[in-house]
């Protein structure tokens, strides 16, 4: 604590207007924080490994044999198709992880974003800077969205690479039996990754809304886990089919649509709109909670 008095305040009553830190700087700081966190890196590494593990396992098993029955829930038959098809592997991996794993990672990031910061007392630091609560939520939602894109992107990337290494570029076959060129296949995977990112962002937004109401990131994780499980169960109850269009995961099964040729866009568009609705609801509730809660 040496004397560094030159950093003492020059009286500057003129600079009294409202001022705020530039938004890009906040976004950069948020991203640096998310991607410096060991937990985030471990999760991304894990996600990156999934397509590789599936690919290697399918290769080791060699001939997967005729799959029994077909359409068996979360990409069960997709995984079987993924053997010997470089296009299907990344999407099968995404479809499988979208069932539970990916939503949980989105929930983890959403939980850390507000509840975790609150628990560490770090949210105060930015609120006192000051960062207005609306901007804070924007930054947090942006961070969650970026993570969602990274999570889906990293799986798609390792999925493609693994598929290509195992099967080469000629085995790019759609579910409809058409052979695709490499750019076409890449586009399909990109669409799938983008769509999955949007769904994850919706989960993350819901996680943020819960996150704004609690100090415990584990509560967020548990709520989202419970929600995903309950939604999946509801999805199976035909008696509740009037409810199904309201459930976020109603179109998660339709990810396989990108593999069809020509690609039917209806279900995917519906799923995207549904995710957007969830984002609108969740972020507005999160804002309402965050802007009135004590910091």
């Amino acid at each position: 604590m040496t004397e560094t008095l030159e950093s003492a305040p020059p009286p500057s009553p003129a600079a009294d207007g409202p001022s705020r830190a530039p938004l890009p700087r906040l976004l950069r700081a948020e991203l640096r924080w998310i991607f410096r966190r060991p937990r985030t890196l471990v999760v991304l590494g894990l996600l990156a490994a999934i397509p590789v593990i599936i690919g290697v396992a399918l290769t080791l098993v060699d001939s997967p044999g005729p799959p029994d029955g077909g359409g068996d829930g979360d990409g069960g038959s997709l995984v079987a198709t993924a053997a010997g098809n470089a296009l299907v592997l990344p999407i099968a991996a995404l479809a499988m992880a979208l069932g539970l794993l990916l939503p949980l990672t989105a929930a983890m990031v959403g939980g850390d974003a507000l509840a975790g910061e609150q628990a560490h007392g770090t949210l105060r630091g930015w609120l006192l800077a000051p960062v207005s609560r609306g901007r804070l939520l924007f930054v947090k939602a942006f961070g969650v969205a970026t993570f969602a894109v990274c999570a889906a992107g990293v799986m798609a990337l390792t999925g493609i690479v693994t598929g290509l290494v195992i099967n080469g570029t000629d085995a790019l076959v759609s579910l409809s039996g058409t052979t695709l060129t490499f750019p076409e296949a890449l586009l399909k995977v990109a669409i799938a990754a983008g769509w999955v990112s949007l769904q994850l962002w919706a989960v993350g937004a819901v996680a943020l809304a819960i996150s704004a109401c609690t100090e415990h990131p584990m509560v967020v994780l548990a709520s989202v886990l419970g929600g995903v499980v309950v939604f999946s169960v509801l999805q199976f109850l035909d008696a509740l089919d009037w409810l199904h269009p309201f459930l976020l995961n109603a179109s998660w099964q339709d990810l396989a649509d990108v593999l069809r040729d020509p690609m039917p866009g209806g279900a995917l568009a519906e799923g995207a709109l549904r995710a957007a609705c969830y984002i609108a609801i969740a972020l507005s509730l999160a804002y309402a909670r965050l802007s009135t809660k004590d910091g």
């Binding site: 830190a21 906040l26 700081a29 410096r36 060991p38 560490h120 007392g121 949210l123 630091g125």
Partner: peptide
């Protein structure tokens, strides 16, 4: 004090500094 345990002291302050309007 409220800081992120996985960041260094300097990184923590850099994060706070990013939010400082002045």
């Amino acid at each position: 004090p409220g800081f992120h345990p996985f960041l260094s002291g300097r990184e923590n302050l850099l994060r706070l500094g990013a939010a400082e309007p002045k």
